[in-house]
Design a binder for these strands. Structure first.
Lengths: 175, 175
DNA sequence: TTATAATAAGTGAGTAATCACTTATTTATG
DNA sequence: CATAAATAAGTGATTACTCACTTATTATAA
């Protein structure tokens, strides 16, 4: 990975997150990365290849983020850690950009990557089971769905109070 | 409103919902509406004017949809009716297209129209207050956030089981 | 009523700018 | 010197939008 390759990836990540994939031109990416437009095609083949590279990089990032939840054994801690992931994310501008891109891509291209959350969903099911919740699968699914809603609001709604919502949630689940 | 104007609006609504606003060209809209491209600009000024017209039309639709919740006085019924709105919507292909467009626009242009849900949020706060929930404001906000998540999954996740999630929710809120 | 004038609706070809992508050429590196 | 990295200058297709013009509808006047 050369220096210019990284510059291209960073420029593309920020631009795709800001303006979306389709409405970001390769010439804009080249300008922000301060490279020639042709270099993008030399390194990534085409525009989609550039997007694929960014998503792959992000998936590795996501795995690291979720690893802590999946390896946890105490059920209450599993739930608490999962809920607090969004707080951790919200403090890292790079992570925010990445998740913003993930959601933008979802809506722009209408692809929902379920496989990404499968492992963490299973961890939540186990946790809710151990805590004797009546319907652990539904409980886990609802919490994941709620996280989608919270991400949506955190990214799009300027005055959304993330931290107090998280506190309220932890209170609700008694974790 | 002439017949061709309506054809343009319908074509644009479906195309914007399918492929997004920015990546739908005016020539595509004209083709689907079976009119000349120039007519779009005669009636709506520019591409953004077309989008504005569609959104305005939809907001009136949304008001009608929420009216039933807002005028309800029994607190449990307020919550139940609110939760079931998404079911009602999911049965009308036209409504699905409209909400899909709403979310796509949100993410594409990064505008979150809070004013649209203000009235219904207040109705929920009142309901939760009457039901002696400890934190009615947070409770209402969380439910609205959850609905964003459910809409996201219903639209994007092909195998999302909406009805059983709704049943589970009603059970949780005892409504 | 009927001819005429005025307005609105609609068309299709054309605009410069931009799109993703390619090719030819130059620069750097081992 | 040879290979890879990078650039610059292109390609045809597509973009939102405009323009000159025709056709249909409505209003006015003899």
């Amino acid at each position: 990975m050369t220096e210019k390759q990284e510059k291209i990836l960073n420029a593309a990540l920020s631009l795709f997150a800001e303006e979306g994939y389709r409405s970001t031109s390769t010439s804009k990416v080249a300008k922000r990365a301060e490279v020639s437009e042709g270099l993008i095609f030399r390194h990534f083949g085409n525009k989609e290849g550039l997007l694929t590279s960014i998503i792959q990089l992000g998936e590795e990032q996501a795995k690291v983020l979720f690893a802590d939840v999946i390896t946890e054994t105490d059920p209450k801690e599993v739930i608490r850690k999962f809920i607090e992931i969004i707080i951790k994310t919200s403090q890292d501008p790079n992570a925010i950009a990445f998740w913003k891109l993930q959601f933008k891509i979802k809506w722009e291209l209408e692809i929902y990557g379920e496989h990404k959350t499968e492992a963490v969903e299973q961890a939540l099911v186990t946790a809710f089971t151990e805590l004797r919740y009546l319907n652990p699968e539904k409980e886990a699914n609802l919490l994941l769905t709620l996280m989608d809603g919270m991400a949506t609001r955190f990214i799009l709604q300027k005055n959304f109070d993330l931290e107090s919502t998280i506190e309220f949630l932890k209170q609700k689940y008694k974790v």
